[in-house]
Amino acid sequence: MARPNHFRDVIRIGPVRVGSRSDVRGRQKHTAACTAPRCGFSADYDSRAAAELAARTHTCTTN
């Protein structure tokens, strides 16, 4: 049975939310996900700085 995602240190940068979590092997993962309708951007990163950079430079492709 998969563990539910429990995000910590969630921040919002524009429409993108960045949060930290532990994966099933106990490693830290950082996720950036856009909350704009019909955007669909989300990605996992190994460092928090990379996730925040992705959030700052993200531009939604939806009109």
Rank of each mutant, 00 (worst) to 15 (best):
V24N: 14
S47R: 15
V18P: 02
G26T: 11
R21N: 05
S47W: 10
C34G: 04
R3K: 13
A50L: 14
I13P: 01
H58F: 05
R8M: 11
C60P: 00
H6Y: 09
N5A: 10
H58G: 04
R12E: 15
E52R: 11
A55M: 04
T35D: 13
A54M: 05
H58V: 05
I13K: 06
A33Q: 02
V16Q: 01
K29S: 09
R8Y: 10
Y45P: 00
S20M: 06
R12Q: 15
E52N: 11
C34T: 04
Y45K: 03
I13Q: 07
R8T: 15
G19A: 04
A36D: 12
P4S: 12
P4A: 09
A32N: 00
C39T: 11
D23Q: 06
I11L: 13
T59D: 04
V16H: 02
D23N: 15
N5W: 08
V24D: 14
R21P: 02
E52V: 09
D46Y: 09
T31W: 04
R8N: 12
L53N: 08
T31K: 07
G19D: 01
Y45A: 00
R3G: 12
R27M: 12
H58Q: 07
N63C: 09
D23I: 03
F7Q: 01
R21H: 07
N5K: 11
D46F: 08
A43S: 12
T35W: 09
G40T: 12
S22K: 13
T61Y: 07
A32M: 02
R8K: 14
V16Y: 00
C34M: 04
A50D: 14
N5T: 10
C39K: 06
G26C: 05
F41M: 08
A55E: 00
D46C: 10
G19L: 00
R56N: 04
K29F: 02
G19M: 00
S42A: 08
E52W: 03
K29Y: 04
